[in-house]
Amino acid sequence: MSRQMGDSHRRFLQTMMANGMVDEQGAKRVYQYCCEIHNTQHAPDKLDDFIETINSKLQPMFMNIRKGMSEESGDQFYALVNMAETHVTRMTSDYADNELELFRKTLDLIVYSEKGNASSTDILNSADTMTTKKLKKSETQQLLNRLVHDNWLNEKRGEYTLSTRCIIEMEPYIRTMYQDQVKVCHICRNIAFQCQICENPTCGIKIHNPCVARYYKGKAEPRCPACEDFWPHEIPEVRRPRSQSRK
């Protein structure tokens, strides 16, 4: 089943290692580019097979190239993830123990929130309850900036959300740690943080915002796909897919 890796696969993997995450358009272009350099056959619709070949050899190293969706734009991304132990392996070389504790607290806040976000105020306050070496307010703020810079968190107007890369990489960890809390999107079946929730208390399913947009597009009266109740939220517009030319 698993084919042998060639230099085109290796070059693709090196690009993933250098970038961590690449959007779908970018991945397709890199795929084509790697095949052209090494004169191997390039089938535009076979990107996932190509990646599967790499993954079959990466698996024994507890690494994987995984696909996931941006909760904001709905775009697909590919990320190189590390499955060894927990998520922390990748982070432990960059963050101290108390910094990781604050990250876990932020994760708590986001998972337990309705909309999949946590305000900077709440995060700063949660720093007071740390059990490892406490972080000052200014240190916490600096750490949050670093987590955004390193692409674990996104920030918009003082609200923090999990980055796409973070969700792809930590999905297994989050699913184990927050078994009862985590819900999946009713449409795409991926884990859902930033989303809309059915207001029927016996239903309460979640749908990602971009999935909402696609699902209800052109429907006169939006109803919950599970309980048929009226869907009371604002339906966002379907975003245009990102143009080819954009780097």
Binding site: A18, N19, G26, Y33
Partner: peptide, 16 residues
């Protein structure tokens, strides 16, 4: 060290 030949010319995505 990298065994793959460095490629001159633009890669479709710029590595950081």
């Amino acid at each position: 060290i990298n065994k793959l030949e460095p490629v001159t010319g633009a890669s479709p995505i710029t590595n950081p």
